[in-house]
Nucleic acid binder design. Structure first.
Lengths: 150, 150
DNA sequence: CGGTCTATTGCAATCCGTTGCAATAGCGAC
DNA sequence: GTCGCTATTGCAACGGATTGCAATAGACCG
């Protein structure tokens, strides 16, 4: 699965994207962006705050969260909610995907867009609703836990 | 819409369900249960706390949340997460259903088990995963918002 | 370079929810 | 009735995230 190169590989690109919207380039944002670029996959908000603080101990949580909002608007990250309701950010050029989360053992699986196609089609058909796959977390029981619960 | 009679219509029934599990009947639980019986559909945790406090100003939030956990184990309520991650409880004899939530306009729709059948089947087939429909919240864009975003 | 406009920051307060722990009180037994 | 076991409560502290507001500082203009 060769992915398109992310349009946010370099700081300059992000900066340009922000400027194009009349948004500003600040040291704090730079920190958050650097942290994001060093991350892959899923990260919780709190984790990002922690990593930023490591880079710059003066980091303020609210600034990080606000920056993440902005970056989501620009398309650099997307967020979803873990099964416990916490925020979870998807970073980078990962293909869009949803999550399956087992309430029994806590493990989780990714759901590719191919697998999810049926789901998207179903809601599209019944409600004209366009599902945001990246924001989708499905809870339930995995095969192993179902068997164990016999 | 005649629903099946809930097994939790009277206090006595809940009490019996609790006892059967070695759980106790306390004034605080009684308050929570009465509040639940006076509620329909979706309620957030905070709302329930507030209603309990109205009935008994001495109500402690943690007690309410813990009671809700217990009642979920017994099957009197089920909880899900609103799109913003807040807890949302489904009360009463409502048929199980999921939610579709539009990120554009904020409205939401219920998804009956018939409609969701395709979804359940898809994950069952691919991962042997049993979806918890009552816990399912799907975000995306509704027909109207998609049109408006043209 | 200096001025202006306003996006952004820092801070403090607040909200929703959870957790650890010692004290309390259901409830079944005698 | 009262004893004992242990589920439950109250409380206080904590964690993640959001918000209002005054002060700060980017970025564009002349």
């Amino acid at each position: 699965m060769p992915d398109a190169v992310s349009p946010f590989d370099s700081l300059a690109e992000v900066r340009a994207a922000l400027r194009a919207r009349g948004l500003r380039w600040t040291p704090q944002r730079r920190t958050v962006i650097e942290v994001l670029q060093a991350s892959r996959g899923h990260v919780t908000g709190a984790e990002l705050v922690e990593r930023c603080r490591r880079r710059d101990p003066a980091t303020i949580p609210s600034t990080v969260y606000r920056t993440l909002d902005v970056l989501e608007e620009v398309g650099m990250v997307r967020h979803g909610h873990a099964p416990d309701g916490r925020e979870e950010f998807h970073v980078g050029a990962e293909p869009e995907h949803g999550h399956l989360h087992c309430a029994g053992c806590g493990s989780s699986w990714e759901v590719g867009s191919d697998e999810a196609a049926a789901v998207l089609a179903a809601f599209e058909a019944s409600h004209g609703f366009e599902v945001d796959l990246g924001h989708l977390t499905v809870t339930g029981r995995c095969r192993a836990c179902r068997a164990a619960a016999s």
